[in-house]
Design a protein around this nucleic acid. Sequence first.
DNA 1: AACGCCGCCTGATCGC
DNA 2: TGCGATCAGGCGGCGT
Length: 311
Amino acid sequence: MEKVHARVMTPFSGTLDSRCANRLTWVMPELPEVEVLARRLRPALLGCTVRAVHVRRQRPLGQTTPRALRRALVGKTFCSLERRGKYLLFGLAEAHSDPVTVVGHLGMTGRMYIQPAAALLPKHAVVVLDFANTRFVFEDTRYFGRFTLRCPGLDQLGPEPLSDAFSPAEFHACLRGSRQAIKIKLLDQALVAGIGNIYASEALFQARISPRRASRRLRSEEAQRLWRAIRAVLRRAIAFGSTVPLSLADPAQTGHSSLFYYGVDPAEDGFYEEKLAVYAREGKPCPRCRAPIRRVVQAGRSTFFCPNCQR
DNA sequence: AACGCCGCCTGATCGC
DNA sequence: TGCGATCAGGCGGCGT
């Protein structure tokens, strides 16, 4: 079991090596990772009826008490699973009572999977939902995630970047009202939902826009380029995540005898090297012009970019 | 009211 | 060897 934890790496949790920003050891969950998780969890989860609810950590429940969560879920059956930005919306229903929605968020290090009822629980389990012979586990090392009945942040979300609700004109209009650096603005979930630190850098690279430009200074064609880049980068990451070779997703290999949660070791298969053009690549050659990628800190977070390509 | 900044939280790493 | 400082970051809350 412990061995498993050392080995399994997933696109749904993680952190950047603190001493060497060039080495990506884990990946934070952003829109593509949450979308891939939803797609994989959905078929396994729908139809499962909750027999018991165990709350191991209260913080991710926010305002919801363990008792309220238990009352809301026990006896109900999972009937839908949707993604909104980086959030997961679990729908549960029962014949003679109102349907409920549970809001989930992976935070920095959250993971969600289904395992056999006999398996050992992870050290940082937050919520466990017992089914007949299996169970749903939400674990989160840093407890930044959410698993709750009420989540105020959800109401503040901007448009889904891959939907028609996300228009270049409106995007540009929002940017014009902000003096913030464009990289920081992209992290604002009210502007557009689901972009995190990794894909903000990646989208700006693809659009050839410097992360330090003031949002309001972007010209119309630049905003449009960025709009397009955001969608392309996210779509590509989703496609990549959902086409991970099955051998890498083999439950036997990851040690989870159930699975549903797919481990990929970036050091072994180069998965992330191929996917990310600039993120965590300080000093390495720009894939477009070979100039060394630079790292700067904006609002306390790392930004990676090519000083030559991005103006 | 937009925006900056802090606190939350743990694990890995590095210096002494 | 072991201990303490540092760092990663999504997001809510608070101050200006």
